[in-house]
Simulated scan of single mutants.
Amino acid sequence: MARPDRAAARAEFYAPEIAFDRPVPKVPAAAFRAERDRAFAADAATGSIPCDLSGQLGSPWPATTPTMLARYVVIRAGETLQHQHCSTGEVFYVMRGAGERCAGPNNLRGSAAMHSACPAVSRSSIWQRRMRSCCR
């Protein structure tokens, strides 16, 4: 018999008919005003600001819900943000300015009020993403 690999040893298996009946913690109501204010401050530095409820959710990793982490991303004009997240996808909404997301074959250009959903780039692909913004 083959030895299970490390990923298989950590995996949780659910039959399709009960896959969505697994217990998940209740998500508390949160407004994230402090995070919003940090993101919209005139002197906000390029970077990301997580909307983290992991303490209330009992999660060992940053999380806004049991399966997602929302964050504000600030990119000052002329600057670049590179990030590497362990995720299966990303959703963006451009609040102001304009920019570009470069991630292998999944490049996007966008400006205010544009939204998009993108697949994440796998670990074997180029992980670096750059975004440029003209908002400041």
Rank of each mutant, 00 (worst) to 15 (best):
D52E: 03
P66S: 06
R96A: 07
V74R: 14
S111L: 00
H83L: 14
N106T: 11
I75A: 13
P119C: 03
L57D: 09
D37W: 03
A63W: 02
F92V: 13
R130P: 00
A44H: 06
T80R: 12
M131S: 02
Q84D: 12
Q128R: 11
A112C: 01
P66H: 05
Q128N: 06
V121L: 02
A77Y: 04
M95W: 03
S111H: 03
P66Q: 04
M68T: 10
A113N: 09
T64P: 06
L57G: 07
P66R: 05
N106H: 11
G110D: 08
P62N: 12
C118H: 08
G104K: 08
A70E: 15
E90I: 14
A63H: 03
M114T: 08
T88E: 10
R109N: 12
R129P: 00
M95I: 13
R130C: 12
M114Q: 10
C51A: 05
S125V: 05
P60E: 08
Q56T: 06
A42M: 07
C86I: 03
Y93A: 04
E35W: 04
G58A: 08
Y72H: 13
I126P: 08
M114L: 08
R130K: 14
M95D: 07
Q128Y: 11
A113L: 05
S59N: 13
A113R: 06
F32P: 09
G110V: 10
T88D: 10
H115D: 00
R130W: 10
M95C: 14
V91S: 05
A77F: 02
S111R: 09
R109L: 07
S59D: 10
I49T: 13
R132G: 02
R123H: 05
P119W: 03
E35N: 11
T67E: 02
E79V: 11
Q82H: 12
E90C: 04
R109K: 15
E35C: 07
A63F: 00
S116K: 00
S54Q: 04
C86K: 07
P50F: 03
V121K: 00
W127Y: 04
L108I: 13
Q128S: 10
A44Q: 08
A103R: 06
E90Q: 07
Q56G: 03
Q84P: 00
L81K: 09
S111Q: 10
T65Y: 01
Q56V: 09
G78E: 09
T88V: 11
E90S: 11
V94D: 01
Y93P: 00
R71P: 01
Q128E: 09
T46G: 07
I75E: 08
R71I: 03
G99F: 02
W127T: 13
E100S: 12
Y93N: 09
G78K: 13
P62S: 15
G89Y: 01
F92E: 06
I49Y: 07
S59P: 04
D52C: 06
P50W: 04
A120Q: 04
R38M: 06
T80Y: 14
N106Q: 05
R129D: 01
D43S: 14
Y93W: 02
W61F: 07
L69V: 02
M114F: 04
H115W: 03
E35T: 11
V91F: 05
Y72F: 06
A103Y: 01
P105H: 05
P105F: 00
F32Q: 14
E79D: 14
F92S: 08
I75F: 06
A31K: 15
I126V: 11
A42L: 10
